[in-house]
Design a protein around this nucleic acid. Structure first.
Lengths: 158, 158
DNA sequence: ATGCTTTGTTTGATCAATCAAACAAAGTAG
DNA sequence: CTACTTTGTTTGATTGATCAAACAAAGCAT
């Protein structure tokens, strides 16, 4: 069932954006998708057409885009990978929110099911051990601070 | 400097493959690139032509492909991201070698410099604390084993 | 309802990636 | 050297992503 023929990065981004917009404002209009994806409106229309041909969205002329059940499955999975990666990058690698999100945004297309699952398990494991997680953050932050000051005077004896 | 105009995923893969082949057998031939990348020979030739136009490889007709200095920079960085991700996926997420490599292969194109740097620091931090790293592996492995057996009887009381 | 503004669509281009098939050059046996 | 095999190249097609410009429909003011 559900052949789930692979969807391109741009298409996956579009599905994800439709889902976010549906959740955030109840509807996904071309203008908002265009802004969210950073591409021309005509590009959005073309992408929606391809997604519609694959049965992943419906899009009536001059109407709103909405996800089909199959499209919702893909968009949700992609969104889940995005959110998980964002959290890991921010909470364990201590990247600033913008960098964490920007990287999650690209990485989300590259994790397969096994890696996604394992990463979820790792986060679950850490979340069940708040002291371990807090300890990591504290020591890693200290390590970064130390590395940074060492880096500043790299190559010279003070 | 070095404008380093962004290179597509396929191009980055190609540069990386040229580097690997150069290191492994001293030379990168079209046939081997084709096999390594899983695309037609004609695709390889087309990609090499585009890379040559950007000054990243040299490729004389019927000759070997080789990286220019600029191409070497990109290929090395990509290779470094690949290797780092592979190691993290295998050693911390405990993915099997094949899955770790397959995911690294796709993720490698999506990490920006800041995330790459931070991930390197995290691995450096962990490597400097062998007992912490070993402890993680041991407990996470145990957690995975437990989750798996719980998963098998999910939903039913034995 | 009439006219502006916003929004969406179409059309026509380009470029990258890809394949398949036809072709050409190199290399290797005999 | 000639024939066969391997390797590389060209050509021609397709598909997806993208933009810009022209156009069309909706939506709002007044």
């Amino acid at each position: 069932m559900s052949a789930t023929r692979p969807v391109s990065l741009a298409q996956e981004d579009c599905l994800e954006a439709v889902l976010r917009l549906q959740q955030a404002q109840g509807a996904a209009r071309v203008r908002d998708l265009s802004a969210a994806l950073g591409v021309h409106k005509s590009t959005v229309v073309a992408t929606l057409k391809r997604l519609a041909a694959q049965g992943l969205v419906t899009h009536a002329r001059y109407g709103l885009a909405s996800l089909t059940p199959a499209g919702t499955v893909i968009a949700s999975r992609t969104g889940a990978r995005h959110e998980l990666l964002r959290a890991v990058l921010a909470e364990f690698l201590l990247l600033d929110p913008a960098a964490a999100d920007a990287n999650a945004c690209r990485l989300e297309h590259a994790l397969d099911a096994a890696a996604h699952q394992r990463l979820r398990e790792a986060v679950g494991f850490a979340d069940a051990r708040p002291r371990l997680a807090a300890g990591w953050r504290r020591s890693f932050r200290a390590y970064l601070a130390g590395a940074k000051s060492k880096g500043r005077r790299s190559g010279g004896i003070p």
